[in-house]
Design a protein around this nucleic acid. Structure first.
Lengths: 221, 221
DNA sequence: TGCCATACTTTGATTAATCAAAATTATAAA
DNA sequence: TTTATAATTTTGATTAATCAAAGTATGGCA
């Protein structure tokens, strides 16, 4: 049985890989993401390699093997189902569920996860718009566009938030910018690095590109 | 912050104390209950004493201090609320909730526990009939009698099961012997070490005294 | 081509929790 | 009172995870 620490490394390697072009994750990015000393990451990754969860090439980086990928997807599934559960069933705010799920994903039994899955109606998407892998490890990533790369005057739907910092989520919620909401970009200013959006039947808000980049949207045909 | 291990020792010391007359728990009972080597228990208890959670007298035993008692009651509350939650909200069987709760009690945040408490209507009793301590650490133990010490021909109500082994609970469930059910002892045989009980409007079952002792009942006036 | 900054790995220690086995103390029996 | 047995503590090791700091490669720049 994998320890909580092992599970966290595997999940983080998976998440880091999503951010890059290739499929070899650097030691540095792992150490930074997990907030451990570089040497600690090296030691752990070597032991993950001994367990056949990853392939490790010194001075190059690490790549998940099938076992590891399966474990990562399982954890992602747990994490996202738990987040949805915390919002839908227990009524927590979406800004406070991430850290909670981070702990629970290592502890809930498969039996409990199955009950939660059924209770929620086998959902496909979590409260931040992240897709929930199936029990068999299938993950369907939708084709979404960052809000800052969107054209002006089109009707678009907020579909996914890629930053789960509590403060950012609270800001979005206060301004009605949650997944499902439809908006239009009414103005963009390259030099001011900002866009102005208008919520359907609602207010207008100005966003910097750093914030807009974290909001993924879908065009409404 | 106390580790999971520390929490488990504290809780176990509390539970062992309930089983005895005095309030000093022996090292041996702790080691046995937690399934660790005797020396391990000694080491840990000494460190609990350093943390001011217990008083430890070598070769004598250990007694919870106020801090420790508070922690134990907090854990008991979590454990029992979680058990009820697993049965009532997630629909698990009462025979499979103990081990699950054993893990979750160390991980769920106070915020989540409060949501669960509210969702369940601030319950006072868990699925096995164990009382749930209040958030302030109050615990009202009812005055219950072991079934094997009960008089014959009285109407009594099953109120609490003190053994949470899955197999025993499954046996009870299959025979309709769950908290809330009213029964009558229709026969007892000192020498055969058994009693015969009859469920109201239902079947008769014979129980050995070892099993009957684990079923606590209440007289119906 | 050679050097150097940066990224990475190694080394030596530390902490929490554990064990087996040896040493000690207390208890109950003779 | 002495002794044997049972309970407890000590000792010396181990495992998982971590750190700081010292050592080592590698890739780009001069």
């Amino acid at each position: 049985m994998a320890t909580v620490t092992v599970e966290n490394y595997i999940k983080q390697i998976y998440l880091e890989r999503l951010k890059i072009k290739g499929d070899v994750v650097s030691m540095g990015s792992i150490a930074t993401a997990l907030e451990v000393a570089p040497g600690t990451a090296t030691t752990m990754v070597k032991s993950l390699a001994d367990s056949e969860l990853v392939e490790y090439e010194p001075r190059v980086g690490v790549r998940l093997k099938d076992n590891g990928e399966k474990m990562a997807l399982g954890l992602l599934r747990r994490h996202r189902l738990i987040e949805l559960f915390l919002v839908k069933i227990l009524g927590l705010d979406w800004s406070e569920i991430h850290d909670e799920a981070e702990m629970l994903e290592h502890v809930l039994s498969d039996k409990v996860m199955e009950k939660i899955d059924v209770l929620l109606g086998r959902p496909k998407i979590d409260p931040h718009g992240d897709p929930i892998p199936s029990a068999t490890g299938m993950l369907d990533e939708r084709n979404l566009v960052p809000l800052n790369q969107c054209e002006i005057d089109l009707k678009i739907k907020i579909s996914r938030i890629t930053d789960q910092q509590a403060d950012f989520l609270k800001f979005l919620e206060k301004n009605g910018l949650m997944p499902g909401v439809t908006i239009t970009i009414i103005e963009r200013n390259q030099f001011a690095d900002s866009i102005m959006i208008k919520i359907d039947e609602g207010e207008s808000i100005s966003l910097g590109s750093a914030a807009a980049k974290k909001i993924l949207v879908e065009l409404i045909s």
